[in-house]
Every structure is written in C-alpha cells, then in structure tokens.
Design a protein around this nucleic acid. Structure first.
Lengths: 243, 243
DNA sequence: CGAAGGCTTGATAGACCTCAAACACAGTGG
DNA sequence: CCACTGTGTTTGAGGTCTATCAAGCCTTCG
C-alpha cells in the first residue's frame, strides 16, 4: 500500500503526517474511518455555539473559520482551518460548543462520528497521541494570536497571519513557496485580527507598497518570504511541524 | 478511603474533580503519582521557552503564569495558573516549549516525570481523557482571552479576567463567593491583557469608583459578582466546569 | 532611614476606530 | 448587450481609546 498517493485523497493523512510519526498500520486505520462527506456553502455554519456534536468535522477542501459572536454583535474569528484540519476535534471531550465553526467559501467537509473516533483511539494509542498533539498545536496557535493581538501592531499581525497560513498550507501541499490562494475578505481578516476593515485595507496597502506582498483577487504572492516573516516577527516553531 | 479529605492535600484531585468524573480507582492512581516538590521564588522561571521538559509541573500553592517575551522586549502573559493546574501538561506531546512558565509569587510546584504520567495514562484511559480535556479547557481560555483582546474594551477585559479567576479559584476552594487573593501587580495585569500599566491603573479606578470591585493589598472583594460579570461580558461556560 | 518596587497622576501623542461615501467588479435579468 | 444589484475594496475626515513619557507618592523591608 502506497500511502503517499493517499495524501491527496485524504488530507487528514497528510496533515497528521506533518506533525506526527505514524506507522503504516495507523495510517491504514485512518483511511478506514467512515466518512460522510457534506458540502457547505460559503458563510454557512458547520457547527454552532451551544451545539452538542456527536461527530467531528474534517475539512477536505475549502476554507473554514472558528468564530464567536459577542452580545454587541461583534465577531471574533479565532482561527482559520484548511484541508486536513479537524477544527472541532475538541468536541470529543468538551460536550458543548463554546463557539461556532463556519465555511468561508464552499467547502467539503467529512463528518466522522465520535463513536468511530473513540473506537479508533482506543485501538491505536499512537493516533490518540497524534490527535491530542493536534489539539495542543491548535492551542499554540491561539497563544500566538493572543500575542499578536496583545503586543503586536496591526502591520505585524497581518504579516504574521499571512506567514502562518503560508507554512500551514505548504505542509498539506496547498501552497507553493511564494504564495497561495487566500479566499478571505478584508472584513474577515479584521475580525480575525481584532482590527476594523478599514484599517486592514490601509495596512495591506502598506504591505503592498513595501513590496512585501502582491495580493489581488484572492491570490497572494510573497516575493520574499523571509522579509515578510521578519516584518511579522514570525517564527514557525509554535506550529510544531516535524521538520 | 475518603477522597474528600485528600482534596486539600492534592489540589490536582480537586481540580480534575471539578472538570471530569473520576472513579475511586482513578483518584487513587492520581494520589499514587510520585511527586517531587520544589519551591520557586517569585519571578523565577519554572520552565523556559526552548526547554525540552522531561517532567510536568503541578501547582500546589502560589500563583503562576505562562508568558512569552517578544524580540522588542515586550511581554505577553497568556494565562494565570493556580493550585491544581498543570500549566505545561502540553509538554507530554509537544517536545519543545514555545513559551515560558514562571512563578508570580513564591509557589510550591510538584514535578511529575513524563514517564510516570505516560504510565498512568496508559493504564487509566479515563484519566487520559480527563487530562486531554484539561488541555482543551486551557485552549478554551486562550480563545476567550483572544476574544477579549480582539473585541473587548480594557474595562470589559479587566472585569472579565477578575471573574474568570473568581470562578476558577472557587472551583478549587481558594475563593469565597465574593472575593479572593490576587497576588498580581498592575504591570502583570497589563501584560496579560495587552494594556499598559498606566491604563490598567486608570481602569481599575473606574471599576472601584463604580463599586464593582474593592481591591487593595492583593485582596479583591467583589460586592456584586453578577454585576461584575455583566460589566465584563463574562459567561463561565467556556470553562466547562461540571456543574 | 533609605532604597526599591508598586501605585497614582498629568500631559501629550499615536494607533486605530467610526462614519460616510465613492469605486470596482462579478453575477443577474430584461 | 447593458442597466442593475450586491459584495468587497478604497478613500477621506474626525474622533477616541490607549500608549508613552515623566514625575511624585506610598508602602514595605533591610
């Protein structure tokens, strides 16, 4: 069995392979998971604040975000999720959702019953460790975003986010070295970074005029990745990738 | 064996009991963990950014924080930890620390070898689930802090933090209904909330003058908890306590 | 009693927000 | 084929929250 060829078909395999060492047996077990694929339109919720999910959602294609709406109507986006990610893996151990997960563009999502996952993890402690690790890396990303919103300028924050997505997309084969598709509006960027749309727009123009990014029509080109990383004070070690 | 009386001696038992259901056997196994107790002075690091820990630290008494220093010298505090917490539990699955953990006041810390923990978790899947859940709740707190720094005013943020500590301290028996010891300087509060010391001071005065808090000498009194929660837009559900 | 750390206050500045409107572009329908 | 609509982007002007700088004050402790 050639697992390399399955990476395309099953992005979860690709993703976990980028953060943990898996045996062939474990990889096979992952491939054997029963998946129900469902397509979500742009701006539709996959899981809602207050829900008690009985399955986890694995992103197969598209772009997904984790967010919460505050009483005053403001929205905070707490993370972007890409193919291979299981944004609500936590629902395995936290019964009630304390936020929502939504598709930003049309996305195909595989639903995996909790039952199947629990069964899998019982039999394969290595996979249990890998998924626990995955949730810990998620937490590390939250921390890094916290640092950004607490102590970095808007300019740095945006540069940092663009770098994070570069690295993560590349780890699952969805980015080339110098760019990727970014199907996110400036409004959504603002909600993710704690900024107003207007300010995001102005800072993006700064980044453009400095030649750090070329961004239009949802396509991002990064002429010099290291320069952008420096501008965003970005160090990928918090993503805990294997190499 | 009366486990209730052990809660005092072993705050971990108390803490886990507040977030998960444990059998007597599991409780006993927790009590059997080999602990090496060590006292850390105020402002001394327990684990450092870049370390590769071989043990986890359990807070027995005192007050601890998770933080990171940025290149420009700024500090972001990403969480406060109290007796019963294991702030670096993640080191079980993430080899390299991407931040530091430090005592804010003299604190006694129990060091638990990874080996012992792994052994424990293999034998007691229920405890493994409880500790995984604990790291997920940690992540939920990060998310809530993110929301604060992204979308809440300084006034709300401070009120929110004071409420969070109230609930968490109460869950391990360290707070009465209307207050607790808060051994944190205004400078540290600022670093935790992404604010300057000066501004923290002014907002605290606002909170005081509105009668929402009485704070001096490291002791916080909350005349009306519900009012403070309303001021901080605080809803404890993200802490995922049992009841 | 002096030193040190933390708290408080005042004045000034800047980053970012809000409001408001114009512009660009893709999709829709007649 | 061209108005029409909607969403996203861009620009301008004014305002505010919060940072920074600088100093004085208070308490604790050796």
């Amino acid at each position: 069995m050639n697992f390399a060829m399955h990476k395309q078909a099953n992005p979860l395999l690709w993703k976990l392979d980028s953060i943990a060492v898996l045996s062939d047996e474990e990889k096979q077990a992952l491939l054997d998971l029963p998946l129900t694929v469902k397509v979500f339109e742009a701006d539709s919720d996959i899981v809602r604040d207050g829900d008690r999910p009985t399955e986890c959602c694995l992103v197969l294609s598209g772009f997904v975000c984790r967010y919460k709406i505050l009483p005053e109507g403001k929205r905070q986006i707490m993370g972007f999720y890409i193919p291979g990610d299981i944004p609500d893996l936590q629902s395995l151990h936290l019964n009630v959702m304390d936020h929502s997960i939504s598709a930003l563009v049309t996305s195909s999502i595989a639903l995996i019953p909790h039952e199947s996952l629990r069964h899998l993890l019982e039999r394969h402690p290595g996979l249990a460790a890998a998924l626990w690790r995955d949730t810990l890396i998620d937490a590390a990303m939250f921390r890094e975003w916290m640092i950004g919103m607490g102590r970095r300028s808007a300019y740095q924050r945006i540069a940092h986010l663009l770098c994070e997505l570069q690295v993560r997309l590349k780890a699952v084969g969805l980015a080339v070295r110098n760019g990727y598709d970014l199907p996110v509006t400036q409004n959504e960027l603002g909600d993710a970074l704690g900024l107003s749309t207007v300010h995001v727009n102005r800072v993006l123009q700064d980044l453009r005029s400095e030649g750090l990014i070329v961004l239009h029509g949802g396509t991002l080109h990064i002429p010099d990745l290291e320069e952008l990383q420096a501008a965003g004070d970005f160090d990928p070690s918090y993503l805990h990738l294997k190499r």
